[in-house]
Computed example of a mutant assay.
Amino acid sequence: MIITFLGTGTSQGVPVIACTCEVCTSADKHDKRLRTSIMIEAEDKVIVIDSGPDFRYQMLREHVMHLDAIVFTHEHKDHVAGMDDIRAFNYKQDAAMDIYATSRVQEGLRREFSYIFDEFKYPGIPQVNMHTIVTEPFHIGSVKLIPIEVMHYKLPVLGYRINDFTYITDAKTVTDAEKEKIKGSKVLVINALQRQPHISHFTLDEAIAFAQEIGAEKTYFTHISHRLGKHADVNPLLPQGIELAYDGLKIEI
């Protein structure tokens, strides 16, 4: 199974268009961070977790010719805004896209993309099959996903464990019960927004402490703000076994 980091950045902080900091102006490809998302390529399914505003470009950049499903973590715009662009896959595959989300996230999608769910189906609009996620594990083909609930300030967000790989974004607090679902993972992906305190995201120090508590063989940080600093400056300072993820990174699990 191949995991591709489609994006490792965030909308948090100063918009890139107005920012002249060393990260936003860096020529290093590791600092070119699109909105956070990953792609899972299994033997029988290709799955994307979250389709943010950069979804279309991410699919083009990775030359994705087939996509079976999108799984959502939560309903914030930087994680769902690109769902309209599934229409290309609808056309090519001649099938509706399977969408996996909690009932609350589905409500957000219906507000954001009301035209998709209207009784009158306008020609060419995205076609979806909605599947409701709860707290129980579920399968997409051969891929088993175990939901892990974390808190993004007061908003519940789902992370997912797949075999020995755990992916979590937008976390600030995680209960002991949910940590038990994560422990034993060989690879952990967790958000590390910035160095300064933040109300709804792990800081760099909090992410390091969480990673060390879980004790995965390898931890990658994602959902990185430009405020964290340049990849070349931050990565060498991280503890052994912990690295910053970057757009286009591929790992095999």
Rank of each mutant, 00 (worst) to 15 (best):
L60W: 04
R87H: 11
M97H: 04
R56M: 12
M65W: 06
V105E: 12
V64W: 07
H66N: 10
I224C: 05
Y246F: 13
F55Q: 06
H66Q: 13
A95G: 08
T132M: 10
A27K: 11
M65P: 00
D98L: 01
V174A: 01
L204A: 08
Q127D: 11
T8M: 08
G82L: 08
F113Q: 04
L109W: 11
I116F: 11
E178L: 04
I125S: 06
I148D: 00
M59V: 07
T173S: 15
T73P: 05
G215I: 02
V23A: 06
P156D: 12
E217Y: 06
L67G: 06
F89H: 07
P236H: 01
D31K: 01
K172H: 14
I140H: 00
E213A: 13
F165I: 06
A232V: 09
P137F: 07
H223G: 07
A209Q: 12
V23E: 00
I146S: 10
T135E: 15
A232L: 09
E136Y: 12
C19Q: 05
S37I: 08
S11I: 12
I38G: 05
F210K: 02
T102Y: 12
I224N: 03
Y160E: 05
E62R: 05
M97N: 03
I162G: 03
K181Y: 08
I38E: 06
V23D: 03
H66R: 13
I190S: 11
R56K: 14
V16D: 10
F72V: 01
S142I: 07
I168M: 11
C24V: 08
K179C: 11
F5G: 05
P147M: 10
V234N: 02
R87C: 10
V71E: 06
G248L: 09
I49K: 01
E22N: 12
F165M: 04
P126K: 07
D78E: 14
S142D: 12
V134C: 11
I140V: 08
H231G: 02
K230G: 02
G184R: 09
A216S: 15
I125M: 12
E112Q: 15
Y160W: 09
G215P: 04
I168R: 00
K230L: 10
E107H: 13
I251W: 00
I148M: 07
Y91L: 13
T132S: 10
D164P: 01
G215V: 08
R111D: 15
T73Y: 03
E178K: 02
P123Q: 10
G215Q: 07
E213D: 15
I2A: 13
V187A: 03
K45T: 10
Y246P: 01
Y91H: 12
E136S: 14
A69D: 03
H201E: 08
H152R: 14
E206P: 05
F5E: 05
A18L: 15
K32T: 03
I116W: 00
K45G: 05
L145R: 02
R110L: 09
F120L: 12
A27Y: 08
V234C: 04
F210Q: 00
T132V: 15
I49L: 09
A245F: 10
E119Y: 10
I2N: 15
T10I: 02
L249P: 01
D31Q: 04
H76F: 08
Y246T: 04
L204Y: 02
G141H: 06
P53L: 03
K218T: 13
F55V: 07
C19S: 14
I125H: 05
L34R: 06
D84S: 01
H76C: 09
F55M: 08
L34S: 13
E107Q: 15
T73L: 07
S51A: 15
Y160F: 15
